[in-house]
Structure formats: C-alpha cells, structure tokens
Amino acid sequence: MSFFETIANIDRRVIFLFIGFAVIIPVLLSFSCTEEASPIVQAIFDKIESLPEGSKVLMSFDYGPSTVPEIQPMIDALLRHCCEKNLRIYMMALWGTGHNLISESMVDIIEHEFPHKVYGVDYVNLGYKAGNQGLINVILTDMKKMYTTDAVGTEIDAVPMMVDIRNLKSFDVILSLGGGFPGVKEWVLFGGDPGNVPVAGGATAVSAPLLYPYYPRQLLGLLGGIKGAAEYESALIKGYPKFKTHSHPGIDMMGPQTVAHIVIVIFIVIGNITFFVARRKEGDERGERGILK
C-alpha cells in the first residue's frame, strides 16, 4: 500500500487522537485569543445596556449538563451584565436539567459576585416546569397558572418581584439559553412572536445555524457557541473593564477551538490531496488499459 493510500484509509482513531491533542495542549498552555463582538452578539449587549434600572429580564435555562461548557459562559456573562445594570432577573427552565444549573449559577455569579442582591427582590428562581412549548403557550397569557410557587416553595404572590408579573408580556426581554428542544426557536415562535416581547438567544455552535433565519426580526441577537460567549465576554469587558479580572471561560476556550479548527482544516487538505493523487492514478491506469486495447 502506497503512502497516499495509507493516508486515504487512515483509521478515524488517528484523527481523534490529533483532535484530542489539539484541544488538550492549548488548554495546558493556557493559549487564548482576543475577540471582537459581531453585530449579532453586540445587539444583545446593546439591548441589555439600553434597559432602564428595574426592567424585567426572563432568563430560561434550556440546556443540560452536556452543553454546560458551551452555554454556561454565556449565562455567566449575561447574569453579570444584568446584575450590573440592576435589572430584575427571573430564572426558569424548560429542561429538567436546567433546575440544578439555575441553582449553581445563582450561587456562583449572583450570590458570590453581587452579595448585595436580594432574593425575591432582584432575582428569583422559578425552577423547572414540564410542558416544553406548551408551557410557553400557557405563560404567554397567565404566568401564575403554571408558577404557583418559586423553586423553593415560596407562594408566588409572596415574592415581591412577582407581584406585577401577569404573563410573558410583562417582561422587557426574554433570554433563552440552549439551542435544543425546547429552546430558542420555541421561545421565538410561541412566546416572542405572539406576545411581541423581544427574544434573544444563546445556542450551541451546532444548532446556531438553525436560528439565523429568525435574526434580526424575530430574534434580536444570538450567541452561537463558544465564539458567541467569548464575544459577549469581550463586549462586557469593553463596557465594564472591572470584569477583566473575573473568569471568562469563553475567551479562554477560543484558543483550543482555534487550534482544533486548524487541525480539521489540515486534515481536509490532506484528504483532498490523497483524493486527487488516487484519481490521477486511476486515470493513468484507465489510460494504459485503453492503449493496450
């Protein structure tokens, strides 16, 4: 077997090995890259920035542990921004797995970095409710029909920031994080569009292309994968330099992602070279057979 044939039939595990190294080595060397916010990300930042103090932000944690590395950096950056702007944050989950992730984010970001924020006044955890898009359908007209208590069992009317909430139209912006089902698309179709409430989203890089058609009319902005998170973190640091010292996993992970992309590009180039060599060889052989005839 020739060198090119060997390369053409390379075991996929060799590719896996290279990708593994392409991610691990930059992580170990703390290789990171700077980012500039693209218009689709900047639009979300500008929207949050434009909201007056006390505005109501509904944040839906529509993801699970599998996509934490991609989605959590977005959540962290958005929570910091909302807290800094003194907006009221309503956290809920359409995914069962989102419940724990709300608790973690509350502890890690709000309680730890903004200890003066008061639960029930500045932020609330409404927890997980089953129902997927059906839940959105219901809360579009009546929030308290589904949420009779918050996640820890407090009567909903005893939560001060819930008093003037009637339905989805009571919110100034909806942020849905997670590109799966139910997720950003369902919020746009069943919440944002019929309720005329602006919806912004964050999704994994794999599912982000599906959401582009909704931008900019139905979706005011989109954070796509690690790059989207990194861009939002950059915008936040640019607007509020004090956040430079905070963790920014999105920016940190852009290094490994860059190297992994380059390795994939190199493999595609190698694949094409072997393909052309094999095709030329095949052509030559066919030509020779033609002469013999």
């Binding site: 007056p52 505005s55 009571s170 100034d172």
Partner: peptide, 16 residues
C-alpha cells in the same frame, strides 16, 4: 406605575 417604555417608543401594552 405599570411599566416603562424605552426612548423612541410611542406605544405600550398594559397586559395586566
């Protein structure tokens, strides 16, 4: 107060 509309807005839906 029932709500706040951003600058430039000339309509508000009071859904309560």
């Amino acid at each position: 107060s029932v709500g706040f509309a951003a600058t430039g807005a000339n309509r508000y839906v009071d859904a309560n």
